[in-house]
Simulated assay, not measured.
Amino acid sequence: MSRGTVNRTILAVAGVLLLAGGLLVLAGGLDLYGRVGLSMPHRWPLLGADRPLFGGVARSRWEHRSWWWPVVIAVLAVLVVGALAWLVTQLRRRGPVSVELPSPAPATTLRVRGRAVEEAIETGAVALPGVERVAARLDHRPGRPVVRTAIRLTTDGGPAELLAGYRSGPLADARDSLGLAALDSELRLRVVAVRPTRARKRARVV
């Protein structure tokens, strides 16, 4: 599962939970259950505008414990710091949004999306023999872009053949498409490890 898919899944789950909580609060505050004649369970939260989410017994149940408030504060602090760190990670640019192409006219600026370059490299690399998974990222060094690609090989894939095919295939195509004389690239290879299986011999007794 890619990082983008994980992020979208987390956002979707968080959005559904926040939406459900907001609807519960709205329904209780507006006394919608009584207006539409719904009979909710006794333990259902926010049954009416005059009923709090947590009753007095629930609020004071653990207050006499010395560990209660430190634990509550620590948990809330971890949640806030984790949420802020995740938000900063999402907002931080992971690479150039676009790459400027050589323009045939002085007053014309041509640009291509960085993600389009990444997708083209991933599509070309995953078609090479012995490749199972590819993840490409376009970064920007001072004055020139650089492609960082991680490739996962199957047990049939050869690193030497893959490197030659990657240089002459996806990397060369990206370089030519961008109109660059050279395109820096960093390639990480990972080979799928296969656990050795023990041969089991069965003796047949006649």
Rank of each mutant, 00 (worst) to 15 (best):
D176A: 09
V117E: 01
D50K: 13
S98L: 03
L84P: 00
P145A: 12
T149I: 15
A182P: 03
R141T: 14
A58H: 05
L153C: 07
G114Q: 00
R113L: 07
P170A: 04
R93F: 03
A27S: 15
G15V: 02
N7W: 13
G28N: 09
I73L: 15
R141M: 14
V80W: 15
L11V: 09
P159T: 08
V112Y: 00
W62G: 08
D139Q: 14
R190I: 03
A125G: 03
R93T: 13
P159G: 08
T9D: 01
A85N: 05
A77K: 08
V13N: 02
W69Q: 12
L79M: 14
R198W: 10
L87S: 11
D184F: 03
A182T: 14
A136E: 06
W68N: 10
S177L: 10
D156I: 10
G22C: 05
V131E: 07
D156R: 12
P52T: 05
V36T: 14
E122C: 05
D139F: 13
F54D: 10
A20M: 06
V194Y: 01
L17P: 03
V192S: 14
V13I: 14
P129L: 03
P159A: 12
R152S: 11
P104F: 00
G37K: 11
R202N: 10
M1F: 08
D184G: 10
R148H: 15
R111L: 00
A77R: 09
R51H: 13
R8W: 07
E119H: 09
V112F: 03
A74M: 06
R195W: 08
K201L: 15
V206K: 12
L87M: 12
R137L: 14
V126H: 04
L101S: 02
L138V: 07
L171A: 06
L30K: 11
T123R: 09
N7H: 08
H64G: 06
G82V: 01
L47K: 14
L91R: 12
P196S: 10
R141E: 15
P196T: 10
A193K: 09
L153A: 06
P102F: 02
G158V: 10
E186D: 15
A105W: 09
V6I: 08
S103E: 00
D139H: 15
V97I: 09
V88Y: 07
P104G: 00
A83P: 05
A120C: 05
I73Q: 08
L53C: 04
D156Y: 06
R152F: 07
L178M: 04
S98Y: 09
R148C: 11
R59D: 04
W68V: 02
